[in-house]
Amino acid sequence: MPNRISRSTILLPNSPSILASAAVGGKKEGEGPLREDFDLLSEDTTFGEKTWEKAEMRMQMDAESRALKKAGLHPEDIDVVFAGDLLNQCISSAYSLRGLAIPYIGLYGACSTMAESLMLASLFVDGGIARRAMAVTSSHFCTAERQFRFPLEYGGQRTPTAQWTATASGCLIVGEKNEPPYARAVCVGKIGDLGIKDLNNMGAAMAPAAADTLKTFFQDTGTSPENYDRIFTGDLGQVGSDLLYELMEREGIPLKGRHDDCGLLLYDRETQDVHAGGSGCGCSAGVLCGHILKLLKNGTYENVLFMATGALMSPTSVQQGESIPGIAHLVHLSRKPQ
């Protein structure tokens, strides 16, 4: 049974295993530093489909089928799937899973969806509600631009704080305790908002929520950054990461040197024109499912905190002058069970 030690932090005494994971990416992701870590990279970001929405759906299906294959499982072996994405009504997830007949719970956590889905999958398995649970999410640069910003061919200039939505999908399967890596604890984030309104500076909008979740988790567990090999945030980018350091510094928890941001790992900022870094559900999903879990599996890391961050606005709320609420969910992944 999960053991709730505070309002936010829940330990997982049964320490469910991540049985398998798969990461799929597009062309730009294939030109980045993590190209070796992806299971599938497509030069053609339409993934052979007619619309960008279908392309994103196809990409998610690829991640799901590859994760199942790597785990040696079939869809009917999965008791529940937690899935979400950035598109209105989470259509990428609903359509990618419509053929698999797995009990489905749709999530909206914006770019925090990978951590949110992994958290819920781990809780379900730890609590014995499910034997095996799937967590999957995706984002596609083209669908996100169409929905949140401008038509793709519109000539606009990005500001230096803008981030690049990753074309990527990550899927993982959580099962009863087996082999490392294990999920040992989760921390449910609270919505934080310090008044950032700039749609082109999401890192800054999400950093306060990230700082709050981290601080809460360290306090609840009596640990500090030194207890972990690496602390990964989802897509704070350069601006958000710098702000996170600043906020944590004020709390007396120095983070620099122990922290990496998936949005900064996925691309080479010098050569890939992504401004402040990558973003989107697929950014942290691809980096977790391809890169981080691999390093946990091969023993490079013993203990890792994975915290994906999300910006919970919509184009409507932004046009109405609202500021951007942020969220950050955290999962403690380890080679040792609880």
Partner: peptide, 11 residues
């Protein structure tokens, strides 16, 4: 233009 062309991916 919309009849003849499609929007493309960006990098």
């Amino acid at each position: 233009a919309a009849l003849l062309f499609k929007s493309g991916d960006k990098s």
